[in-house]
Amino acid sequence: MTTSRVTRRLMLGATGLALSAPSLLLAKQSARPSVNRHNIMGFSTHDWQDHFDTLGKASIIADTSSRALHFWSGDGKTYKVYPTSVPRSDELTKRGFTTIVRKRVGPDWTPTPSMIEENPDLKYMPPGPHNPLGTHAMYLGWPAYLIHGTHDQRKIGRQSSSGCIGLYNRMIAELYEAAPVGTQVRII
């Protein structure tokens, strides 16, 4: 008569192997070149040529579905990707082509009429640690739409804005220095 002995150590080892199998499979699959340019988290890469005829002064693509901003310098030597916050809903999302028309360090903030309608307690806010625009703002050619920083780091990677594209303060400071007024922007 043969008896099988299932020990706690054997059960823990088998459980660990079962839990790690999907990760091992994904790692093996990611080592292969892929035609699909989306990873498991929904992030997608972009080529500026698919959106613009030239790089111009510089180019930005803000991808609201993958919550990432792609930046190319005008000479093509610099390419950066930044995680972003995006509008809370499609109704708040403006899509299309525009440009950066002005920039400001230490922006002040005035809520739009629709924001006040949604929350009557909102008031003008000077620059500072509670300002929703963070440390830097780049104003787009559409009224009330910006690419700006945020002091609330929980918003990045989420649908949390009233229409703007938000970045971590340290990242908007970097982008602010790299993207001149006149940078072409596409929000998709």
Rank of each mutant, 00 (worst) to 15 (best):
N36H: 13
N36D: 14
N36S: 13
N36C: 04
R37P: 03
R37S: 14
R37Q: 14
R37K: 14
R37I: 02
H38G: 05
N39D: 15
I40P: 00
M41G: 01
M41R: 04
M41A: 02
F43H: 15
F43K: 09
F43I: 08
S44C: 07
S44K: 13
S44F: 03
S44G: 10
T45D: 10
T45P: 01
H46A: 12
H46F: 05
H46D: 03
D47W: 01
W48S: 04
W48D: 01
Q49C: 01
Q49R: 15
D50S: 12
D50Y: 07
D50C: 07
D50R: 14
D50I: 04
D50M: 11
D50N: 15
D50L: 07
H51Q: 01
H51D: 10
H51K: 02
D53E: 15
T54A: 01
T54G: 05
T54L: 07
T54H: 09
L55K: 12
L55F: 13
G56V: 13
K57E: 13
K57R: 13
K57A: 15
A58P: 11
A58C: 08
A58D: 08
S59E: 03
S59I: 07
S59H: 00
S59D: 00
S59F: 08
I60T: 04
I61V: 15
I61A: 10
I61Y: 09
I61G: 07
A62P: 03
D63Y: 01
D63F: 04
D63G: 02
T64P: 01
T64K: 03
S65W: 10
S65M: 06
S65F: 06
S65P: 02
S65E: 09
S66L: 09
R67K: 15
A68Y: 04
A68F: 03
A68Q: 08
A68R: 12
H70A: 04
H70D: 06
F71S: 08
F71P: 04
S73P: 00
S73R: 09
S73I: 06
D75Y: 04
D75G: 09
D75H: 05
G76F: 06
G76S: 08
G76V: 07
G76H: 14
K77Y: 00
K77D: 12
T78K: 09
T78S: 11
Y79R: 13
K80D: 12
V81L: 07
Y82P: 09
Y82W: 08
Y82S: 02
Y82N: 06
T84N: 03
T84L: 10
S85F: 06
S85E: 10
S85P: 02
S85Y: 05
R88Q: 15
S89Y: 01
S89A: 08
